[in-house]
Write a protein that binds this DNA or RNA. Structure first.
Length: 909
RNA sequence: GGGCGAUUAGCUCAGUUGGUUAGAGCAUUACCUUCACACGGUAGGGGUCACUGGUCCGAGUCCAGUAUCGCCCACCA
């Protein structure tokens, strides 16, 4: 006996456990057509947010659907070791103990992070289970596990050997808090209300001025970052700027330092901005760095790794925080008369995407990947259509980035991550100066330290070298350097495994737009370069979940919804269905808590419809009667029965077609409408009082089973529960492995007399029913009152519908009269015929008269425009025949309606 | 500055290649606790499809321009 209320929590916990332990998520490589998807691995430190819920719901819908279609399916789960994020989390924990990572030392710290991972790293993986993800947990991977690490080392070595990895002095984005370089993409620019400081740089040799103006002859430089002044090694003007042409080649004095720096000219300078003169600080600004390279300027690094000034900034400022220094330095400039004035100025300032600290540009030695050669084949793969973006427009964004690709800075000054497999020979390793070339470092890159040692021995000819003579590069690799290998490293690469052979390339990749560059593009490059084939066939890009006001959800703003809370309040199925229903691939979705009531209400509807079936004799004991395709309905079906069978067939075809093109939302709508409108609103109402109740329910049973399976990808738990409650499945079976319905066969349709005509006929009949209900409502006939209805139609099939009309209309009688009959009663025209309601005179005449007048006015407008349209020869000639015919029909119908209303108007006058 | 997108009912959004009187959910109005479901049922109300032009027999749909709003990339020190 089904409970009155569906206990989602119990059902969801139970079924997930059953699915996972019985291997429902697992397929073996081999038979059948593979369908494989790798999950975008969430950060191991992460907790499930709405973005995950959306992303994974879409994937699970696709995966469950394909699995039910009989595809050999793999959805591979896993997590990302998330270098900076994870290191930060553990460092924070250490801080509570009053320790820094340096206090532990590298090895102990890394062990500590592993310890943390073992303890808390399962959080998100557990939460994903709550969503109902049908991921194959037996294949769960971690970007820092042994296999993935081997893949990383191999990739680094290979790229290095191919000349695609190099180490270079470069100005990089530096997070002083995290103490590491950041890729350009990892810097978030935010509006900043700052200032523009105008500073005087005296021209060397000019005379001293009056008090407050130390030099008469000076040039004015505008800067947003006065604290970098001690690092200036030039000032620059535009070569075409006549105002300053005479100064080029001269020297100016750098305030506060007494140092002389040259005035140079460079195209980079905008004449219109500020004063048209820029101070050049090559070690602390990317543009200045390039200028410095062009003019061979010195690079003076005036800051420490943690964002304080160093001794090169001057004794006074050394050790000062960079922002404190800014204040102090500005004060000194002012005191000594160098500061001219200050303007308010809004610009963009970069922040670390992990910790939000203001990013510093800093000169350092870093490892880079040359991207151009990798990008070219990845561009070609999308151009040729071998790999497809869904929606297609994202390919433009992809091309735009790929065609302007920059080298990728892959080294990070962290401890948590894949350590760079580059080994430097120690200076005191007993290799003479001549053996080291020109005093340069000897670096050996190899997958393991032992292999590096072999290389070192070979290169130096010194067989006595040991591992102790090699220093491994202290840096680790950017987290994305392991994620870009995800589609094949997780399948076993570099080993040749059966999984790799069978499931690669994966079929679909589902992700949000924000990591197209970070991740998708790089996976394309790695897949093609190392596997010879792009890593997936379709790249499905979906929107971002936003708060109700359209802003980004974030914990700090407090406007985020927690999927786990929603699951708790409404159930996972409700969350999934609602998310599917409000998700368009094309744009971002705004969500608020109320939206999830849709899914919750739908669950309730499904549950109650199932209860209704159980009450009518379909319960757990009823396993014997076969599901679809096996019932011999014969030719005697009623029109309503034929209608629901046809509607079911339509729904099955539609859902398959829709999912084929990734229109998750349309599929949700289609299945929602099919279940609610077609089955519940109409067919169940019919079945309650059908002429052959047993047969009507046999059909319902079949239709319901198809509906459950159509729903399953969207709502896995309740469909499984109901399927078992109603006896569609036996113990040990799962709807997950049931066949996804494709509709009825042509033979079945023929045997049951289904056709578009019979379907349309019932739709017309429903129109008539609705029309009469509307008349009842308009004339305020109490629901309990039985009325007399008349239908004017010549359709010979109509008479057979008298009984069903009577019930649906709550009529004591339904009379049929020939079409065109002229009755003085309120009526509505429908495709079925004109429906009349006998009123027996209990109506407010004045009110009716007014209403009729209004309706007539409305119709007159339509008739006028409709007549004009049909009078237009071009319309008749060009428009499709059906459209013209329909227009004619509508016109005739509305003319009749007018005639009817006019008659009624007299009646009520 | 460059690129991409959006603008349809009070709100959130659908609207396939131009072709019936533009749809759904929520909200709202009226009526209904009828034996699956009030997280429900029935019937309504509510839109000159941002604006201006253009192409066409016909434009929410195609083209151009304008306005407003988003996002991404690159940034002016």
């Amino acid at each position: 006996m089904m409970e009155k209320h569906y206990d989602a929590k119990a059902a969801e916990a139970k079924w997930y456990q059953v699915w996972e332990t019985s291997g429902c998520f697992h397929d073996e490589p081999g038979k059948g057509e593979p369908y494989s998807v790798v999950i975008p691995p969430p950060n191991v430190t992460g907790i499930l947010h709405m973005g995950h819920a959306l992303n994974q719901t879409i994937q699970d819908i696709l995966v469950r659907w394909r699995r039910m279609q009989g595809r050999n399916t793999l959805w591979l789960p896993g997590t990302d070791h998330a270098g900076i994020a994870t290191q930060n989390v553990v460092e924070k924990a250490l801080k509570k103990e009053g320790k820094r990572r340096q206090d532990l030392g590298r090895e102990a710290f890394v062990e500590r992070v592993w310890e943390w991972k073992r303890q808390y790293g399962g959080t998100i993986v557990h939460q994903q289970r709550m969503l109902g993800n049908s991921t194959d947990w037996s294949r769960e991977r971690f970007t820092f596990d042994e296999g993935c690490s081997r893949a990383v080392a191999k990739v680094f070595t290979q790229l290095y050997d191919e000349g695609l990895i190099y180490k270079g002095n470069y100005i990089v984005n530096w997070c002083p808090r995290c103490g590491t370089a950041l890729a350009n993409d990892e810097v978030e620019h935010e509006a900043n209300h700052g200032h523009l400081w105008y500073v005087r740089y005296p021209v060397v040799g000019s005379e001293k001025g009056a008090a407050g103006e130390p030099y008469k002859d000076y040039i004015m430089v505008a800067t947003t970052r006065p604290e970098t002044l001690p690092g200036d090694t030039a000032v620059a003007v535009n070569p075409k700027d006549e105002r300053y042409a005479h100064l080029v080649g001269k020297n100016v004095m750098l305030p506060l330092t007494g140092r002389e720096i040259p005035v140079i000219s460079d195209d980079y300078v905008e004449r219109e901005f500020g004063t048209g003169i820029v101070k050049i600080t090559p070690a602390h600004d990317p543009n200045d760095f390039l200028v410095g390279k062009r003019h061979n300027l010195a690079e003076i690094n005036i800051m420490t790794d943690d964002g304080r000034m160093n001794e090169l900034a001057g004794e006074k400022y050394c050790g000062m925080d960079r922002f404190k220094c800014r204040e102090a330095l500005v004060a000194d400039l002012e005191a000594q008369g160098y500061l001219d004035h200050i303007e308010d100025y809004d610009n963009q300032v970069g922040h670390c995407y992990r910790c939000h600290e203001v990013v510093e540009s800093r000169l350092s030695k870093q490892w880079f990947v040359r991207m151009k050669p990798l990008a070219e084949p990845a561009i070609a793969a999308v151009r040729s259509g071998e790999v497809r973006f869904v929606p297609e427009r994202w390919s433009k964004i992809y091309f735009n980035w790929m065609e302007n690709i920059q080298d990728w800075c892959i080294s990070r000054q962290l401890w948590w991550g894949h350590r760079i497999p580059a080994y430097t020979l120690r200076v005191n390793a007993g290799i003479g100066e001549e053996g080291r070339g020109n005093g340069e470092e000897l670096v050996f890159v190899a997958e393991t330290a032992e292999q590096a040692l072999e290389k070192a021995k070979k290169a130096t000819g010194n067989a006595a070298l040991t591992l102790a003579d090699l220093d491994q590069d202290p840096d680790v690799l950017d987290t994305w350097f392991s994620s870009w290998l995800w589609p094949f490293s997780t399948l076993g690469w570099p080993e040749k495994t059966a999984d790799l052979d069978y499931y690669y390339p994966t079929t679909d990749l589902v992700t949000a737009q924000d990591i197209i560059f970070f991740w998708v593009a790089r996976m394309m490059m790695a897949g093609i370069h190392f596997m010879g084939k792009p890593p997936f066939k379709n790249i499905v890009i979906h929107g971002i979940v936003r708060a109700a006001d359209g802003s980004k959800m974030s914990k700090s703003k407090g406007n985020s919804l927690d999927p786990l809370e929603l699951i708790d309040a409404y159930s996972a199925d409700a969350l999934r269905f609602s998310i599917a229903l409000i998700t368009s691939l094309d744009c971002d979705s705004k969500v608020s808590k109320e939206k999830f009531e849709i899914g919750r209400n739908f669950c309730t509807k499904i549950w109650n419809a199932a209860r209704f079936m159980e009450m009518n004799g379909f319960g757990a004991k009823d396993c014997a009667s076969g599901p679809d395709g096996q019932t011999a309905f014969g030719q005697s079906l009623t029109s309503d029965e034929r209608h629901i069978l046809w509607a079911t067939d339509l729904a099955c075809r539609k859902v398959n077609e829709i999912l084929e093109s990734y229109r998750i939302q349309d599929g949700a709508l289609a299945v929602y409408d099919f279940f609610w409108t077609q089955i519940c609103d109409w067919y169940v109402e019919y079945a309650k009082d059908a002429p052959d109740k047993a047969r009507a329910f046999t059909i319902l049973r079949d239709v319901f089973w198809k509906a459950l399976r159509l729903l399953h990808p969207y709502m896995p738990f309740i469909t499984e529960e109901v399927a078992h409650q109603l006896g569609y499945l036996k113990e040990g079976e799962s709807i997950m492995r049931a066949e996804f319905p494709t509709g009825y066969t042509d033979a079945e349709k023929a045997a049951w007399g289904l056709s578009q005509e019979t379907y349309d006929f019932v739709n017309a009949k429903r129109e008539a029913i609705t029309a009469l209900r509307a008349l009842r409502a308009e004339y305020k006939v109490p629901p309990a009152t039985f009325v007399k209805a008349t239908v004017a139609t010549d359709d010979p099939k109509a008479a057979a519908e008298a009984d069903s009309l009577k019930r649906a209309m709550r009529a004591e009688s339904v009379e049929f009269v020939p079409a065109g009959s002229d009755l003085a009663m309120p009526s509505k025209m429908t495709a079925f015929g004109t429906v009349y309601l006998s009123l027996e005179g209990l109506v407010d005449k004045a009110a009716e008269s007014k209403r009729i007048a209004g309706e007539l006015a409305k119709l007159a407008g339509f008739i006028k425009s409709s007549e004009a349209k049909l009078a237009n020869e071009n319309f008749v000639a060009h428009a499709p025949e059906a459209v013209v015919a329909e227009a004619r029909r509508k016109l005739a119908e509305n003319r009749d309606k007018v005639a009817q209303l006019e008659k009624l108007a007299k009646l009520f006058a």
